[in-house]
Design a protein around this nucleic acid. Structure first.
Lengths: 192, 192
DNA sequence: CCTACCGATCGGTAGG
DNA sequence: CCTACCGATCGGTAGG
């Protein structure tokens, strides 16, 4: 599936790869221009600033994560089923966008205000979704956990390394990875 | 316990805090000098370069992690006991050095060669220790895991978020945190 | 999309 | 540990 990208999309994609490899601060507009085969000044015909690119990547990914878990959540299901679905959705987003995921996970701190604060609000709301599921599981005795926030952060970090490792043509596909991670991480909540 | 730091140690400690907060590339020597209350040029009486500080932090922490797991490993013990001990040791190092841990975990990619390659070699050797324990557990049927490397990376990332959250005066102390993490993450290996 | 350029800041050195 | 400074590079703009 080859898609023709607009110049703006090309810039965003190339910048994402560079931000991921070297970090936002260590990537210069001249690095980016070089990679695109144009002059640095020309980039500004398409974007307003270096940070705007970072903003677009971070908030687009935030959106992707929200949409993915909202789509699969069924509040009627058991906590285990809901958590498994959320984990699977999260892993799908990570594996479909490994570079943008890495930028989303590690470069958001270079956002200036008010974007920085807004990003943190979104991230907290996302984690809250997981906390709610775990709380529901605790209240009906399905899970046993010392602290929901603690459990959520352990689970999400246990998922978020995937971008460093995932290859589309590796021996596990996204579904298998999600299933293995869900099994490993869900079992930990069911301690007796 | 107040310790008098040498100027070099003060520089390293202050730089660690800044590298953690803003990232290595976004921290300037003038930022660091400002925080220390001296001129940027004066820093160079104590260190050779900005990168030297990063090198010292990264390799000192690598050493700390190695020493910690070597000290507690007992090859005669069960795989569960060994893994639990390794997890506890790892968490101890993380909680005792939250800022340096963050730098160790996220800023090593700004190391130049040959330090960068050496760092990756050390990190792989560290992970190998965990892989060996898991392999031993698999071979005697104590663990059931699709892929050792996969399991190790899940476990280590499930631990490595702690620096973002740990407060020495929080409601859980380092031992309780380690115990909770070990329980959550070990149960995942014992699936039937 | 380019040439030409801006002021600011970077890591680091010389010399005391 | 400071003053004085270096060449290089930064993000970004003017004007076409």
């Amino acid at each position: 599936m080859e898609v023709t990208l607009s110049r703006k999309e090309q810039i965003e994609k190339t910048a994402t790869a560079l931000f991921r490899k070297r970090g936002f601060s260590a990537t210069s507009m001249r690095d980016l221009a070089n990679e695109l085969g144009i002059e640095a000044a020309s980039i500004y015909s398409h974007i307003r600033s270096k940070e705007e690119i970072l903003q677009r990547v971070c908030f687009r990914m935030a959106n992707e994560f929200f949409e993915a878990i909202d789509k699969v959540d069924d509040p009627e299901a058991t906590a285990s089923a809901r958590l498994q679905a959320a984990i699977t959705a999260h892993v799908q987003v990570l594996t479909k966008n490994t570079e943008a995921s890495a930028v989303f996970l590690y470069e958001w701190r270079h956002l200036s205000e008010p974007y920085h604060a807004e990003f943190l609000t979104l991230r907290d709301r996302y984690e809250k979704h997981f906390r709610e599921i775990i709380k529901a599981g605790i209240s009906i005795g399905e899970f046993k956990v010392p602290d929901e926030k603690f459990a959520v952060l352990t689970i999400l970090s246990g998922l978020n390394w995937i971008h460093t490792w995932y290859k589309p043509d590796g021996k596990m596909n996204a579904e298998e990875i999600a299933a293995n991670l869900a099994t490993m991480l869900l079992n930990g909540l069911k301690q007796t």
